[in-house]
Amino acid sequence: MKKLKLKELESCLQQVDTFENPKLLLEQYPTRPHIAACMLYTIHNTFDDIENKTIADLGCGCGMLSIGSAMLGAGFSVGFDIDADALEIFNSNIEDFELTNINMVQCDVCSLSDSMSETFDTVIMNPPFGTKHNKGIDMIFLKTALQMAKTAVYSLHKTSTRQHIQKKADEWDVKMEVIAELRYDLPASYKFHKKRSLSQRTTCPSASLRVPKYSEPATCFTHKEAQLYC
């Protein structure tokens, strides 16, 4: 497979269609192509957690992160989202890009916990933050992701929750690492950290969590309904 450059990845991702009528209660806003590209590129180049890997994308929406992963050589990606309308757009994106190694499942991610352990190599997600209606959904996504991932979870979070996540990570016995700080409203101004201690990964008992963080206020609610999406 031809190696994609960061700029190429970003311009491909600019072609990804996103939410037509975003449902604010589901916190439907896409990861911006620039952020998605930088995040995925780092996951790929620094941690080698994409190529030939099985990847889950929780709260996949229209598929920005799954599609980017596929472009970087993911073996297979599965997107999970509660919203059929978003998945329909995801599906047409897959058709447009002629990607063949992506599937999607319509379900409430909150109902997946406890059911799948280490099924996927990597989980990459931009979860709902649950700032208003469903406080804590970000942590449910994280916990579920950590159960599903064999190697690592990459997740975007609000800066203000970092300490809380660190506390939880300690509680869950996983290593958390902040790999990038993104300023959502100033896309050009963030920097991925240059130094990372990869050696620590091996001492980690279960999946490790790497959290590029950024800020974005949002609201959310969930319902207990789920469907397989073909």
Partner: peptide, 13 residues
């Protein structure tokens, strides 16, 4: 998953 998933929807397009 304890009733978590229900049967698939009719195929899309």
């Amino acid at each position: 998953f304890g009733g978590g998933l229900t049967p698939p929807k009719p195929p899309l397009g």
